[in-house]
Structure formats: structure tokens, C-alpha cells
Nucleic acid binder design. Structure first.
Lengths: 225, 225
DNA sequence: CATTTGTTTCACAAAATGTTCACAAAAGTT
DNA sequence: AACTTTTGTGAACATTTTGTGAAACAAATG
């Protein structure tokens, strides 16, 4: 994947910890110890993703984030010590793509970085056309057809379908689907999944039967009945 | 989830406390009272996760962790009395996946264990195809065939079969089967097992004979009659 | 800020599965 | 052989899980 990540944090230890984790995965890291320095680096180097501590002297995380957004759509992951709702909502509203609560594990950081990069990636690597029986999906264009007829899906429906198509035959529990489509911070009823499965099935018509219920477990997409 | 957890701690009470919490959730636990013993167990048994006290005589937690990492990627959760920064950063740097500060609540331990297992599961995901004589199982897809013909199993039937396949030849009492398939919170008659064995045998046809009755004890799955 | 679209929750119906029970059959004991 | 214990089995019954329409709620759009 080989992306360059800008780490903005006033604590040296934290920056080095993140660098350690990320360089192990093959990412390139650059560090800035405050918002001003971060903005400068952003202007001068190609940055693919920013990891940003909320609590910083001088230019704090929120304001830094807003400044970045004035000029760029680089994905931003927030780093926060407080896991409460306000932080989260405010953080995401302001243009962050994800957040990580301290303390965090190496796996967590790396997983989030991959996830955010994958979500925001322009086009290059991802396979863009998928087919399964009568269903054809152009991922890039987010267009779905069934027997050549276009079908309009909402965000969640589309992402559910994509996940199923990419892991045909595998059974997913509702929790797994929520994790992977809604994100690991989702709170709420797991029955939400059912409703989306229902609408997806209806929109897919006959082909909706390819999404099979696995009683007591969850759902899977299977062409072989 | 059915994972085996290695608890490494020099205090007996602590080990027993953790075991209590974890076994209630259906995890299998093994204990070691120092690092040396821990390494030995790791070499000889399949371990899915390690819970490790940092403060130990002889081989301390950090060094144990490093030794483990030389040979394995098993997830490790640190147990620490000190919540200060140094412990944390150093612990994570050295390859731990999470840490728990003493004193801890049952919920906390269990939650961390689940979280870590979930994060690390996907990659290490257990073998997904199993075979025994004419029976073939794709665990991920939850599909079973006998002599190539698909057989539809219910949840309990499937999980019973999986347990048998993973421990061929081992005799299970009804209580053990209830513990491991239904969970330790099951209340009700043990004869329920009999009924499920019956339906499983019927659905497997000829191959159903591989599930053998051990009179006065329970059942086992055995290919050698 | 009204309107539209999408998402989540809820309550109830429908479906599938799980459990119990009673009695038959088999295995072990005296 | 008679008796006791354990297991097999079919059917009734209970429970759990899933499907679904409508309503509440939230977000995006004009």
C-alpha cells in the first residue's frame, strides 16, 4: 500500500510509538509536534493520511482539522484519550474519518489506517467490476444491475452487497456485518441488519435469494444452493 | 468462540480468578506460574491468547513477551498493577495487544479478551475445511456434504459435528457437550443431547454411525470402528 | 426550513429450531 | 431370567430467531 502518514502529536513518545507500528507495516511516516508544523508539512510533502491528537497546545486538533479541510481532503484519524460521545460526534462532523481511543494496540492502529485508506482510496488498486449470477456491480461507479437492469441501492445496501460479493460463501454474523459495514463504533440493535437485508433482497428481486439466511448464525451470499 | 487461553501469573489467586471469569464464558484455560512454564505450555499446546502478569519472578513479563514473539504471533494481554504511561507504552511496544490494570472486573477481562480475539482472528482464522470419511465440512460457509451430497444441519447439529470433528476419538459426556455447544449457562435436561445426536445421525445417513455411543458415558466420533 | 431520502427501531407474524416426555429398545447386573 | 439402568425415538410442546410493515428518527437536499 505504501502510503505516507503524517503524525501530529505533541508527545514525542506517542509519535514514536505510532511510527514504530506503522513503519513495521511498511508505511512511511513524518512527524509534527504541533498543528503549525503539521500544516507546513502538509503543504510541502505528499501526505496520504493524517493521525492527529486532539489535545495539543497552540493549534488544537479540531482547529487543525478545520484548517486542513479548507485546502485538502486527506483522510484524518483522530487520537483521543476520551471516548465519550461528544468527542466522537464532533470529531467526525468536523471532517475526521475515524478515531482511535488511547490506549490503543498496534493491531488497532494498523487496522484503522488500512481501513481508512481503503475507504478513501481513489481507484488504483481495487477491483472494480464484480459479477455473481445475474448481479453485476461496478464498484467504482457504484452501479448495480440485475439481468442488465439497473438497481439503485443505498449506501448500506451497497456496502453489504460488496462485502458479500467479496467473501462469497462465508457466513457473517450480524455483529460481523455491523463491524465491517457500519464500523466498529456502531451502537444499536443488531436487527438493523435484518432490515437492510430485507430491502436489499427486495431490490435484487429473484437474485435476492442468493443472500441466504443461516439460521441462528447470520447471513451469507451463496450461488450454490 | 471456544478459544484456549494461557494465564501466566505467579499468584495462584489471580490465576484462579481469571480462570473463573473466562471459563464462565466458555473459554478453556491453562495456567503457568512463571515464564519458563509458560513457554513450555506454549510449545506443547494450541494457545489462542495469553494473559500475562508483568511482575513475575525469574523470567519477567517483558522478557517473556519478547521470547514469545520470537516464535509466535499469539495475541498477548498484559496484566499490570501500575497504570502509568511507561508500562503501557513499553508493553505495547514490545508486542502486547492490550493490557488490563489491576484490579479489574470480570466484564473488563472478558471484554478485552473478546476484543483482542476478534481483532486477531481474521488472519489466523482457523482451518475452515474438515474431512472425515465421507463427511466434508466447510466451516466458514457452514456447509456439510456426505459423499458429495449436501446435507442441511441446524445450528446445534452443526456445532456438535464440528466439536466431534475437531476432537476425533475423544469421548464426551452429555454434560461436556452441553458445556461446549450450548454453553455453560444451559439449564435443562441432558437428554436434549440424545435428540440432537439422533437427528444428526439420521441426516448423516450411513456416516451417522461414525458418531458412536459409549454406553454409560456419552458419545464420540470415531472413524475406526 | 420544508421536503425527500435513508436509517433505525418496534411490534407482531411466521418460520425454524430446540426441548421435553413417554414409552420402546438395548445394555448391563444380579 | 428378571431386573435396573441407559439410550433411541416419535410426537407434542415451547422457545428462539427471522421476516416484515409501519412509524420514529436522522441526514441530506433543494
Amino acid at each position: 500500500m505504501m502510503a505516507t502518514i503524517l503524525i501530529v502529536d505533541d508527545e514525542k513518545e506517542m509519535r514514536e510509538l505510532l511510527r514504530l507500528y506503522l513503519e513495521q507495516e511498511g508505511f512511511t511516516c513524518v512527524e509534527a509536534d504541533d498543528g503549525e508544523a503539521g500544516l507546513a508539512m502538509l503543504a510541502n510533502a505528499h501526505i496520504d493520511l493524517i493521525i492527529l491528537d486532539i489535545m495539543m497546545p497552540k493549534l488544537d486538533g479540531y482547529r487543525f482539522c478545520m484548517r486542513v479541510r479548507e485546502q485538502s481532503q486527506v483522510p484524518i484519524i483522530f487520537l483521543t484519550a476520551r471516548s465519550d460521545e461528544w468527542d466522537r460526534v464532533y470529531g467526525l462532523k468536523i471532517g475526521a474519518d475515524d478515531y482511535i481511543v488511547k490506549p490503543f494496540s498496534p493491531n488497532e492502529v494498523v487496522a484503522r489506517v488500512y481501513a481508512v485508506l481503503r475507504r478513501t482510496k481513489s481507484s488504483a488498486e481495487t477491483l472494480t467490476k464484480h459479477e455473481a449470477g445475474p448481479i453485476a456491480v461496478d464498484e467504482k461507479a457504484r452501479k448495480v444491475t440485475v439481468n442488465g437492469k439497473p438497481v439503485v441501492l443505498t449506501l448500506k445496501e451497497f456496502e453489504l452487497l460488496m462485502l458479500f460479493l467479496k467473501h462469497r460463501g462465508q457466513v457473517f454474523t450480524r455483529e460481523q456485518l455491523l463491524d465491517r459495514v457500519w464500523g466498529i463504533h456502531y451502537v444499536g440493535s443488531t436487527r438493523t441488519v435484518d432490515t437492510h437485508i430485507k430491502t436489499l433482497r427486495i431490490k435484487l428481486g429473484e437474485a435476492g435469494q442468493l443472500i441466504q439466511t443461516v439460521w441462528g448464525v447470520g447471513y451469507k451470499f451463496d450461488e450454490t444452493i
